[in-house]
Design a protein around this nucleic acid. Structure first.
Lengths: 343, 343
DNA sequence: TTGTACGCGTTATCAT
DNA sequence: ATGATAACGCGTACAA
């Protein structure tokens, strides 16, 4: 950075106060309440005064003061989104979907993460609550009661989890697991290991029971092992257990675990997919970067985020949106799955 | 979803109004203004009444109404962060860094994206402005004047860009490029192609001129080609031009372009790194998933986000934070770079 | 159709 | 140390 630029670094600029409806009223020669009406209830005003008011508003570069409006209406036009870990690629699409839907409805999205700690999650939710109209919990680690407690204050929508009395956006796990198990069965696999995610993850349990169900129907054995953290590190750490399990195929709670596991196995000379097949969940951005590419059960995350935001909004409006979307998961087959190694 | 659960889907729950300082005042038998003081200016009140007030507040589960406070103080305790594309992994760490710093200072982060459109970016900034105390622009595509215009209203901090009179958090490109060019030089490369990013990206121009500078000093030829979008797709599209350029090494504006390019080259039978070396920028999450792993010039993105948030806060406080951090970029060497193919 | 007056919850100023 | 009161900007019931 040059000295000249450094010297130019701004001190606190003297900001001129934003224009209010009173400024507009004065400029347009009407009362402030008339301005308010013209701006928020168009049509209930004479055409020419409305004209003048809009002109004045534009000239003064007027924006409504959200705080003042919120104080009166109780609505902040803001939605909170709480995720476990901002850097997990799964959330990008959820965040994007929610943000776009919110922006379209002229709502603003506030984002917070809780780093896999249920306690932090509750604290974060409480911290956000007063400044939002509703909350989206993505992959919550909270107890059902805690979620319902939050939902008593403001609208709450959960993603990828079912909680009694709470609006939920859940992709249908079965459709994708069905495909995945059928895929493995067709390749001759007879024993599948499942590497679970966080103990308090509803999605992890759901995935496991779905796997058990479809594998059972196909006469395939299943074995579960726990990793507790949904990270690449956890995938690396579970490699020994996977090898010892005798499974010829592994399904991991998410792609991060799957990729960590795959890296470690390959580094140890295990051939993927020849010696062992690997399937992840989420089909995250970059899942096709690995060699082999990761076969994964994907879901329309962006849609989930979008419908979650929409859910909060319709809860707010009191319009029971019956058109709950059906979100299907499906298998994306890449190179990490192949014919089972003969026993 | 079972029928029972479906039936249980909530209508708008009758939410009881939140407690105010008047409720506390009544319960504690004091005046509302005393409550306000006890809560916001601790110490200026007698110990026992303060005790009573806090007890009452806890009992009523009191939270301050941010709108009411903001109306009076003009402060929302909110920071806006505007990014080009939420799903670009570079931003994950920036967002995380900013969010953590904000949360620590009891601020809230609002997030919005503008999808690479400068017009959308300005609209988004204006939309957010009234409800935030300050703005962070990550990889802005705006004109300097537009940014200064925004900065007149509220504190603005830009990331990875220099704008006169605007606080900027910029990682030192030269350190990493120096390493990268030296690395390529040591491998015998004499002609480097640079695949540029968006035309309006300050960072892209900066990277290009830094490359020219260090390559020039090392007696290495450089050639620029433009991609305009910072995506994998753009990387795929530029493959022909790269091959035609006669360069034995490519540096791409970002890792996404680099990875798209690498995939396409490999698909066409070009060997990476034997036939051509590739270096990206940003060292995004997943850059080590590719085969070969992507050599990349990385920066401490999370730190950048953190200091950007801190910058907004200190601008707000009027404390000219002199301790602007030095953020160094550095080369992460993986498998995508090797000895130059003999001409 | 438009103006008047009040209240939302909080902080700040001025008394007491 | 604490109470009374005004003010922030906006929306709305009521009056004109």
């Amino acid at each position: 950075m040059s000295d000249a630029e450094h010297a130019a670094v701004p001190t606190v600029a003297p900001r001129k106060p934003a224009a209010t409806i009173y400024d507009i009223a004065q400029l347009a020669g009407v009362n402030a309440s008339t301005v308010s009406r013209a701006l928020s209830t168009p049509g209930r005003i004479s055409a020419k005064t409305e004209q003048k008011i809009h002109a004045a508003a534009k000239e003064l570069n007027y924006r409504v003061n959200p705080a003042a409006r919120a104080l009166l209406t109780g609505r902040t036009r803001t939605i909170g989104l709480i995720v476990a870990d901002i850097t997990n690629p799964v959330f990008f699409d959820i965040v994007r979907g929610a943000e776009r839907e919110a922006a379209e409805q002229d709502y603003t999205l506030v984002l917070a993460e809780f780093r896999e700690s249920a306690e932090m999650e509750m604290l974060t939710a409480r911290r956000l609550m007063p400044s939002v109209d509703g909350l989206i919990l993505a992959t919550s680690r909270l107890q059902p009661d805690e979620i319902r407690e939050l939902a008593e204050e403001k609208p709450v929508v959960v993603i990828n989890r079912e909680v009694d009395h709470i609006t939920a956006i859940v992709a249908d796990v079965d459709s994708g697991v069905d495909e995945a198990v059928a895929h493995l069965a067709s390749l001759g696999h007879t024993r599948i290991a499942y590497v679970a995610g966080p103990r308090r993850s509803w999605a992890s349990h759901k995935r496991w029971s779905s796997i058990q169900q479809f594998a059972g129907a196909a006469g395939i054995e299943t074995v579960e092992m726990s990793s507790d953290q949904p990270s690449m590190e956890a995938g690396r750490a579970i490699a020994d257990e996977v090898l010892a399990s005798g499974a010829t195929a592994v399904m991991a709670y998410n792609d991060l675990i799957a990729i960590g596991l795959m890296q470690t196995l390959i580094a140890r000379g295990v051939r993927v997919p020849d010696d062992i097949s690997i399937i992840g969940f989420d089909n995250i951005f970059g899942a096709d970067w690995t060699t082999p590419g990761l076969t994964s059960v994907g879901a329309p995350h962006s849609e989930a985020g979008k419908y979650a935001a929409r859910g909060v909004l319709s809860l707010l409006a009191g319009t029971e949106s019956d058109d709950r979307p059906y979100l299907r998961t499906s298998l994306v087959i890449r190179g990490s799955t192949a014919q089972a190694r003969p026993a």
